[in-house]
Design a protein around this nucleic acid. Structure first.
Lengths: 208, 208
DNA sequence: TAGATTGTTAATCGATTAACAATC
DNA sequence: TAGATTGTTAATCGATTAACAATC
């Protein structure tokens, strides 16, 4: 648990990465000062909500001028605990595992993929980007030794729960699950889901 | 717009795919009748909420016994407009584009990838799974000719907005965006985002 | 019949927005 | 100074939950 900020709604936490992302693009554009109004226009989130969200964590702006982009980025990274780099492992070396193992977007965002596991003997030893696929049997030990807290699951749905159980048992505290199935996890373990089918189905309701 | 059901909160629509997914697994397990209580336990969503969500669309259960799994699946598919198959195109033939082009999970879920586009001459003509990468310049025409309504964006963030504008102009109504940037779209265009970094950052707040 | 579970209402809970004093 | 924008309060809006009559 984050001890510094208690009772902050999870929905607020969910917006922080979006604020961070927009601010980082501003910096790339040499845009050094912004306002809740400008962020609002970029993100489609009301200015009042952005100010209220940020105010949960402190006072980061100046009346009349707004927010200093670089300063707010630094603060948000501290709040989200990504002022350090988290080691992350990938379980599953299929197409999805491949894709995320080679994804360049983790760089400088607080994450570094360190290992890729699979239980298929044909895949173990294979090269994926900078990684050699390792045997899932060695996964739990590797997690404990390197004190890994975050894992991404990219195995078939039929194996996902079993994998999750092993991960949690070995000390994993946060899981990003690409398998299209809801996982059953102990309280305190964080979980996020990525399933393109769910996202697509959420939109077709509105299509004719 | 869905003309049959008006004023239904989007957050309810967002849960329907989860209900559907759980029900489909039940059917695989030859589990033919279920209840809001059982779905609740599988999904971590309260039974009251499940019943209330479903009741927005009709009466699908029976007092005392619960819901007939196959019947509810059929109904949910109708409600979400996935009782037909939607053609979907992918823009961007990099690692992410590769991953989703070969993803087997769309099958029988209402979606079929029909084309993959890229603007890189080195990629055009390349084979990806069952597809030959086509020139992005031909994208707008292809969308109009086949009356495509759904696209997945898997290009770098720097190109995503430009691609989105072309897609919308050609008639695309729903976009699943893998590029890590918030897109600016006209009202009425549906958008969903998949960014592993955002999902991970949402969890590290809670980690020490 | 007795037990189980729905669909629905009303109450509760939580999130968003509008408005504005403070102040840069 | 005048204009702009924050941080915050109170009001509004919306979503979730508890409870239960209806009924299979």
């Amino acid at each position: 648990m984050n001890e510094d900020y208690k009772n902050i709604p999870d929905i607020v936490i969910g917006r922080l990465p979006l604020y961070l992302r927009a601010l980082q693009y501003m910096l790339l554009e040499n845009h050094f000062v912004t306002s809740s109004k400008e962020l609002s226009e970029r993100l489609g989130i009301s200015a009042a909500q952005i100010r209220k969200d940020l105010s949960q964590f402190g006072e980061f702006g100046k009346q009349g001028t707004g927010y200093h982009v670089e300063f707010l980025i630094t603060k948000l990274k501290q709040i989200m605990h990504i002022d350090t780099t988290w080691d992350v492992i990938i379980v599953g070396a299929g197409d999805i595992g491949h894709g995320i193992a080679r994804y360049p977007g983790f760089k400088n965002q607080g994450f570094r993929v360190t290992k890729v596991f699979d239980n298929n003997p044909e895949k173990i030893g294979q090269k994926i980007g900078d990684f050699i696929v390792e045997d899932s049997a060695k996964m739990a030990n590797a997690i404990r030794e390197a004190n890994i807290k975050i894992a991404m699951i990219a195995v078939p749905a039929s194996q996902a729960q079993q994998v999750a159980d092993i991960l949690v048992n070995a000390g994993i505290k946060a899981i990003l699950n690409y398998a299209p199935i809801t996982l059953n996890l102990p309280a305190g373990i964080k979980i996020q889901y990525i399933d393109p089918v769910v996202h697509l189905q959420r939109m077709t309701f509105y299509l004719e």
